[in-house]
């Protein structure tokens, strides 16, 4: 199973992919993840590859072999379409953060839905930011998206929730579990 999580610095992508990695290990899989960070805090694109199966060699997903793209920001979705395998699922958070050239009016924010639709019909939009805000903390949007992701993967909810609990400080544990459950209810 190959999952790409994509978005921008500060959206909790690294943590979300850490949780998925932990879930996969606890299910007995070999697992590897690779991400590009380092300049993420400075507004750059962030991408994390998570791979799990009986044995994983490369920590990065070859082009054309990604099963699920979990996108935290609309435009970021469009950057990774060439990684998708036929029949792959795309989950897109309905959230736009305009890149600098768009902010200053030099370029248009692209029609992401149109671009995605040309590639596949297997995509869904999720209002993760709004769901997180309705729970009172926008930062739990990553747990909302993990909830959605969990419905496309192993059904063992208990392991997911254990791993969220292990990876998060106690103060924000409950709200993240709530967010995860809200995500699971999203269809």
């Amino acid at each position: 199973m190959n999952v790409i999580m994509a978005g921008v610095g500060g959206q909790g992508i690294i943590l979300a992919s850490d949780i998925l990695t932990e879930v996969a290990m606890r299910h007995g899989y070999d697992v590897k993840k690779s991400e590009i960070h380092g300049m993420a805090q400075r507004g750059g694109s962030v991408m994390s590859h998570v791979r799990f199966s009986k044995q994983v060699f490369s920590p990065i997903i070859p082009r054309g072999e990604c099963d699920i793209l979990l996108s935290f920001e609309e435009l970021e979705t469009a950057r990774y379409l060439e990684f998708l395998k036929p029949g792959a699922w795309i989950v897109i958070n309905r959230y736009r953060l305009p890149p600098p050239t768009v902010s200053i009016g030099k370029e248009e924010y692209p029609d992401v839905e149109g671009i995605v639709r040309e590639k596949t019909q297997r995509f869904m939009f999720v209002e993760a930011d709004n769901i997180a805000l309705s729970l009172g903390n926008r930062r739990v949007l990553n747990s909302v998206l993990l909830g959605v992701l969990s419905t496309l993967l192993e059904p063992d909810v208990a392991t997911w929730e254990e791993c969220i609990a292990v990876k998060l400080p106690e103060k924000v544990r409950d709200i993240n579990i709530q967010a995860f459950r809200k995500g699971r209810e999203t269809k």
Partner: peptide, 16 residues
């Protein structure tokens, strides 16, 4: 192989 790359606005790292 693969389709021609999309011309998407880039998101370079920036000073905060």
């Amino acid at each position: 192989k693969g389709a021609k790359p999309l011309n998407l606005p880039v998101r370079p790292p920036n000073m905060c």
